[in-house]
Amino acid sequence: MNVINQIELAAVFLILVGTIASFLSAIGFIRLPDLYTRAHALSKGSTMGVLFILVGTFFFFFIDGYFSIRLFLGILFVFLTAPVSAHVIVRAAYRSNVPLAKESVRDDLKEVLQEEVYNHK
């Protein structure tokens, strides 16, 4: 009984760590200067937070003997698709000329894109 209680406490502690990571990424989401740095903060931190929370939930129910295949698929799906959606958003932002922050020093993708447009015409 006591051992199960301690494992449940460890799972709940994983949930707390994930929530703090998600909160810090949200703080980065309002404080950083442009869309690309905000995407950097948000996608990494929020993905890590939700993975901690879902793994904690999975362990919490796993020690009761309940293996949930739906929760397992949910973990796998979020882990696969959250970086992909961040990539698609940032690509759409760059293609539709959202400006970079003033502090950024070099932009290698711009020359490559101009060369691509020049070769197509």
Binding site: I15, S46, I53, L54, G56, T57, G74, A82
Partner: peptide, 14 residues
Amino acid sequence: LDALGINLISGVAI
């Protein structure tokens, strides 16, 4: 909105 969806997932799990 994407971040809001992910936070909703966390909220449902908790």
